[in-house]
């Protein structure tokens, strides 16, 4: 991406020294403590998700009803076998959370991946060509905005049917308009720059200009926006899971774990609800911290 960007800059001769820019970005990010905390947490989560079978103390699907809703290390008894206690089917909550990290992270990344691909495509078309195409796409996007996001996701799920894979698609679709808008806005600023004019002057095709010159230059806002979106996508997937539309049992998706256990809160098994909630909170917080840090680092106006 940056080598291409360098090419553009060599042509345009306007922006200089992209390597130092990259350095500076990293430096900014590195010195931002909260962003680093976010990054470290996310790396840990990804590692946990990848190596779940080796880390989890027990099988997340193994039912043992006689041990249901037992507390964890803070009490006597089963603590070593089930460090965070057990859920209503007698499955270890810690193991389920560890396996659930896979589902939640996958949902976040894939849903945002779908939204980004669609959004970038629509945003580039609308921003670069303008006129009628822009009108059509942006009015369509406006219509999508008219629906509250979770309601739109629920209606899409109603058509697709329940399931985690379908939840990813639904969330991806719901996030597309926002992404398209962000991309289009950036494209509009890039489109007017001299280096694009120059490309046009030497007779490059639209496709070449868009892919090699416009896209790399709108990447920064896309990265920031995607990072922040992953956080909300995980939350929305949890919400869909909570409504019984997302992950189906026995998958240990965090939102579904929360929903299935909430009735036990009143009978005293607080751990069955609290830990999935904490897991969601920590992940979303980490992604938001990182996203904020990235925005600060990538925004030239915030540099000294």
């Amino acid at each position: 991406m940056f080598s291409r960007k360098k090419k553009i800059e060599q042509i345009s001769k306007l922006q200089v020294n992209s390597y130092s820019e990259l350095n500076e970005t990293f430096h900014m990010l590195w010195s931002n403590k909260s962003a680093m905390i976010g990054l470290i947490l996310i790396v840990i989560l990804v590692i946990v998700a990848i190596f779940a079978p080796f880390i989890a103390p027990n099988d997340p699907y193994q039912r043992s009803l006689p041990f249901r809703l037992k507390p964890g290390i803070w009490s006597e008894g089963l603590s070593t076998r089930y460090p965070l206690g057990t859920d209503y089917m007698g499955r270890g909550i810690l193991s389920r959370l560890i396996y659930g990290a896979r589902d939640s992270l996958t949902v976040g990344f894939i849903a945002v991946g779908i939204a980004a691909s669609l959004g970038i495509f629509l945003g580039l078309l609308a921003g670069y060509y303008g006129g009628m195409i822009d009108h059509l796409i942006m009015r369509f996007v406006d219509i999508m905005f008219a629906f509250p996001s979770i309601l739109l996701a629920i209606s899409i799920m109603a058509v697709l049917g329940p399931g985690l894979e379908k939840a990813m698609i639904a969330i991806g679709i719901v996030y597309t308009p926002q992404m398209a808008r962000v991309v289009r806005g950036s494209v509009l600023t890039v489109r007017g720059t001299v280096y694009i004019e120059a490309e046009k002057a030497i007779g490059s095709s639209d496709f070449r200009i868009i892919v090699l010159h416009v896209l790399p230059n709108v990447m920064a806002p896309i990265i920031v926006y995607s990072t922040l979106s992953i956080a909300s996508a995980i939350l929305d997937a949890a919400a869909l899971g909570f409504l019984g539309l997302g992950a189906q049992p026995p998958r240990p998706e965090w939102g579904a774990m929360l929903a299935d256990s909430r009735q036990y809160l009143m009978s005293g098994a607080w751990w069955a609800v609290t830990f999935p909630g904490l897991a969601i909170m920590i992940t979303v917080l980490a992604l938001n911290l990182l996203g904020d840090g990235l925005r600060d680092a990538l925004d030239p106006r915030l540099r000294k």
């Binding site: 699907y61 039912r63 009803l65 209503y88 089917m89 019984g244 049992p249 026995p250 299935d260 009735q263």
Partner: peptide, 15 residues
């Protein structure tokens, strides 16, 4: 009382 939980238990017995 809670058909979803019973279904989940049956699912795991069948598994």
């Amino acid at each position: 009382f809670d058909p979803r939980k019973i279904a989940e238990a049956i699912q795991s017995y069948l598994a």
